[in-house]
Structures are given as C-alpha cells and as structure tokens.
Design a protein around this nucleic acid. Structure first.
Length: 425
RNA sequence: GGAGAGGUGGGUGAGUGGCUGAAACCAACGGUUUGCUAAACCGUCGUAGGGGGUUAACCUCUACCGAGGGUUCGAAUCCCUCCCUCUCCGCCA
C-alpha cells in the first residue's frame, strides 16, 4: 500500500510511477475522496469534542441535583449528527481503501522503463566451464527422461489431483528432497539466514499483508469453510511473522530462509508452457525473506540475488540475471531481478527465481515497523524476498544439463551427500 | 466435537456507567549519587488520524482496553454477534 500522504503531496510523481507499471492510475479519484474524508473527519472530531464536554456537564449538573433535560436533548442531537457522519466516514474509508489496495508499488528510479518482458535487461550470465548452448548430443526433455527413468509420473499425478500436480518417484523423490535440504543448508551455513518452517495455510489478513489479496485473489486457492488459503509462496507466512509488530532496530536486519510447498491456481494459463514442470499448481520452493532498515534495502537486494546465484553455481547450472523493466514488475515490487536457468531441451531460459525489494509497501500493508535508536520514532521497515530456489523448474534444467548420451542423470557433486547416490539410471 | 474460564499499555495486573488514555508494580530509557558495578532516588515511558505551527521541536482535538455492532447525555465498564487463548473430557499423528 502506498502512503496516502505521498499521493496527496506528490500526485504527479505517483501517477507517473503507476502508469509506468501499466496499471490504471486512479489518483484523481483518491485525491477527491481523501479531501472529502479529511473535511468530514475535522467536522466530526469537533462535534465529538462538543459532545464530550456536554455530557460531562450533564454529569456535573445531575450530581448537583439540577435538571439536565434540556442539555441532554441538545447533546443527543449532536450525537445523532455524529453517527450520521461516522457512517458516511466508514463508507468513504472503505471506498478509499478499496482503491488504495489496488494501487501498485512505485518502481525504483533505477528500474528501466518498458512495457513487457521484452524490455527486461540482462545484467549478467554465468556458464559452467566447457558449457555450450548447442546440444552436441540429443537431449531428452525432462518429461521424457523422467518417464524413462521412472522418477516422475505426471499421468498419475493427474489421476490423484489433476494436471499440474507432479508425482515424484524413487530417486526422483529423493533428488527433490536432496535439493531442498542442500539449498537450506547452504543458505544457513554461508549466507547468515536462520531457518523457518512455516504453516502452509494462512488466514486472509496474512494474504492481504503481502499483497496477494485482493488483486490476485483468483490465482489463489481458498479453503472457504475455514477462511484459510494454501500459500502460493513461503513469502506469505514468513513476511507476516512480524505483522502488526514493532521490532527493535538492533534486531535488524532479520534474514529468514524457509522451505514450503507452494500452491497456485494459475487460472487461465492452461496449454501454453504448461508441459511437465513448466507450470504447475504445486511445487517446492526455498524462500529467503529479509526485514531491513530502509537505507540499506537496495544493497540487501543485490546480496539477495547473489545468494540465489550461489546455489546455481554450486549446482553448475547455466543461468542469467535479468533486471525487470517497469512494465514487467509485479504489483508489490519496487525493483526485481529474475534469475533464469537454461533448458537445453527447450532451448530457452526458464525463470527459477525472483528477487524483489518491496521497500515499505508490504510493511505498510502488514503494519510492520521498527523503532529507531536515535530518535525512538517508529517507521515502516523494508521487506525483501527471493526464491532460493524453486525446485520444479530447476529440476528441468538439472535433468537436462546433467544427462549423459545414454540417457542417465549424473547427480551434481554438491547434491551427492544428500541423495546418497551419484547417478540415476 | 462437548463443558467451563478468560481476552486491559512491552510484561504482571487494578478498574462494573461520569476528569480513567487508563492505578500500582516490573521491564526499558534519561539523569543524580558512586572509584567501577549494583542499589537508591528523580524523571520519561502507547499507537493512529485530523487541525495549527518557522512542517522541526511543539501545541491541540479525536479515536483506540480482542474485532464489529447496539443501548445511553456519557461505555474499558451494560447488551448482541464474531474471533482468539487457556483448562477438563472425547478423538487423533
């Protein structure tokens, strides 16, 4: 959520930012509602002051044994006007909030202008030694090799739950589990995070806090009976850990890493790019979340991306890092880097990580503040998060880049102590 | 799932219709004292919104005692609905 004061004081700047994200700017509507609201608040507060004084007077008169009937009638009339105003105020607040909840975060000034993924900027790429984009030997795509080696069973996954619910079997299941453990251990040992194992179902307030609701409501699964939502990412429970809290400055930065299964409806995306692991309703992800002071959040974003990249280097998987342009930036993000891994069979890059700085956008929604040591004042902190990494798309790259000409899979060195085997055949 | 108890400021906890935004104590912070630490003493010690202001300090008003409604001139205090926590029983990994 944006600061209403920012919108009030810099409407043009805000409009420009929203439009660069290709979102509808309803700034003028907001300004109008805000002005009406402030006027009404002022008027109503004055009435309330009057009522408070009046009813105190009633008390005094009654205590002295006098007749307060006339005064009581007068105060009652004020009270009626107040409740009228209050109900109008509630309407205004709801209306204003309704619009504000749909206003996206503003892009940081370093974000390139652009309208779609075409305009994203590649900032660097990393390739293992001896790597070539040309496939000298034929490479089986992940669904084919997965079936051949009996480690992935998409058909039976579909039988169990529907399309997009992958079933891992045998060494495939072990490999998936090894990846998760390796990534968690690596971040814990090398990057200074502490581990969280969050709930996979959260309430509506949590979904609002990180911005999935209301805008992306249709992409979320919902358990209506209990008012709970299966999380689309561990970002939701982990960021909401500090919802409605004020943390001490000396606690910052707080860096958490956690595994969760992720559930996404992916409404309306059937067909295109949905083969195998490319788009699924349930996948596994290790997520990094940071709570930091505003002045260091952009340095922390760079470190966050590096932390994610380290995993790919360890696994010897070719990747590139993109800086998203304004038009491709997600709703809550001020700046975002995507990491894409190479898929030899698809002959294209697959997004496997997204590292974002939300500045105080989520903190404002979720009401997460910190108290400064110097002036004891509270202010919203900055939140960041990044996948480190998502396993399903990573599995695509892994099964394809580590394939032998005979169709066996060599388990990357870094994973072998987690799998207990070095080859899948 | 059944029965009962309870939700007050960072914590403990008082407050059952009128100077109570809320006693007291603890914690925290600032200071005095002290060779240092401790103790003692003094002071500060919620959040949000509006208005004013040399837009900073500050002044002022309003709201908030789990959430939302209601009764009343006036609600932390009375009524209704919901949420949550705890205890016992049942069930279960």
């Amino acid at each position: 959520m944006l600061d209403i004061k920012l919108i009030r004081e810099n409407p043009e700047l805000v409009k420009k930012g929203i439009e660069s994200k290709k979102e509808p700017s309803r700034v003028d509507e907001i300004l109008k509602l805000d002005e009406e609201r402030r006027k009404l608040v002022f008027e109503t507060d004055e009435l309330k002051a009057k009522r408070n004084a009046g009813s105190q007077e009633v008390g005094k008169v009654k205590k002295a044994g006098g007749d307060a009937a006339a005064l009581m009638a007068e105060v009652k009339a004020i009270g009626e006007k107040i409740s009228e105003n209050d109900s109008r105020l509630r309407e205004l607040d709801a209306e204003l909030d309704g619009i504000l909840m749909y206003i996206p975060n503003l892009p940081h000034q370093s974000v390139p202008l652009g309208s779609s993924a075409e305009d994203n900027v590649e900032v660097r790429r990393w390739l293992p030694e001896g790597f070539s984009f040309e496939n000298t030997e034929p490479v089986l795509d992940h669904t084919t090799i997965g079936k051949k080696l009996n480690i992935l069973d998409f058909e039976r996954g579909t039988k169990l739950s529907g399309s997009g619910f992958p079933l891992y079997k045998g060494k495939g299941a072990t490999l998936e589990r090894a990846l998760i453990n390796f990534m968690l251990d690596y971040h814990l040992a090398n990057h200074g995070y502490s581990e969280i194992f969050p709930p996979f179902l959260v309430n509506r307030d949590s979904m609002k806090g990180t911005g999935q609701i209301p805008k992306m409501e249709d992409d979320m699964y919902a358990i209506e009976k209990d008012g709970l939502y299966p999380i689309p990412t561990a970002e939701v429970p982990i960021t909401n850990i500090y919802r409605d809290e004020i943390v001490a400055e000396k606690e910052l930065p707080i860096k958490y890493v956690g595994y969760s299964a992720c559930f996404r409806r992916e409404a309306g995306s059937y067909g295109k790019e949905s083969k195998g692991f490319l788009r699924v309703h349930q996948f596994n992800k290790v997520e990094m979340v940071k709570f930091v002071k505003p002045e260091i959040s952009y340095d922390e974003l760079e470190k966050l991306v590096n932390d994610a990249e380290d995993i790919l280097k360890e696994l010897q998987i070719p990747y590139r890092v993109l800086m998203l342009c304004t038009g491709d930036l997600s709703f809550s993000a001020a700046k975002c880097y995507d990491i894409e891994a190479w898929s030899p069979a698809e002959q294209k890059w697959l997004e496997i990580s997204s590292c974002s700085n939300f500045e105080n956008f989520q903190a404002r929604r979720a009401n997460i503040k910190y108290r400064r040591e110097d002036n004891k004042k509270t202010e919203f902190l900055h939140t960041l998060n990044g996948s480190g990494l998502a396993t399903s798309r990573l599995m695509v790259s892994l099964l394809e880049t580590n394939q032998t000409p005979e169709g066996k899979i060599i388990v990357p060195k870094a994973l072998q102590k987690y799998t207990g085997f070095s080859i899948i055949d």
